[in-house]
């Protein structure tokens, strides 16, 4: 964790054809997981296939502790979570009591990482942009 921003990296074994299914899905959304914007704590997220499509590298930067909103995912966006990670071997399901342990088991510690603005959460960035818009409007109207 760097200030308010944290990182999570994991390498997971994919189920047979898991990479293929995920690729189709990513193609469908044009590689752009814009829906993840509604989560409100995710700065970024990436999915990379490794070792001939047998493994998935998942890396993300987000605000706060990684598990604070896992329970919300389990009731608000369970289909999305299980659709994405259901392609991973051993995925217990987002609503399973085992899910936090599962993620912890595959988590890889970052040896180093850098955040330019560790005190700016996604929510804070949204607020600052809103404020800037108001200031810009004010300046336009002033002149």
């Amino acid at each position: 964790m760097s200030g308010d921003v944290s990182e999570l990296t994991g390498i997971f074994d994919l189920k047979p054809n898991g990479a293929e299914r995920l690729r189709k899905f990513f193609k469908l959304v044009d590689g752009n997981l814009v829906g993840a914007g509604q989560v409100g704590t995710l700065h970024n997220m990436r999915f990379v296939f490794l070792d001939n499509d047998t493994k998935l590298l998942f890396a993300t930067a987000y605000d706060g502790e990684w598990d604070a909103y896992i329970d919300d995912f389990a009731t608000k966006i369970p289909e999305m979570m299980d659709y994405l990670f259901g392609n991973v071997e051993g995925w217990p399901g987002i609503a399973s009591p085992e899910v936090k342990d599962f993620i912890t088991k595959y988590q890889l510690q970052a040896a180093a990482w850098f955040v330019a603005h560790p005190d700016i959460t996604v929510s804070e960035a949204t607020r600052l942009k809103r404020q800037d818009l108001a200031v810009q409007r004010f300046l336009v109207e002033l002149n």
Binding site: G40, T41, T75, V122, T126
Partner: peptide, 10 residues
Amino acid sequence: KLEILSDVNI
């Protein structure tokens, strides 16, 4: 309306 996806019922 909250800034972060949250389920107030849990």
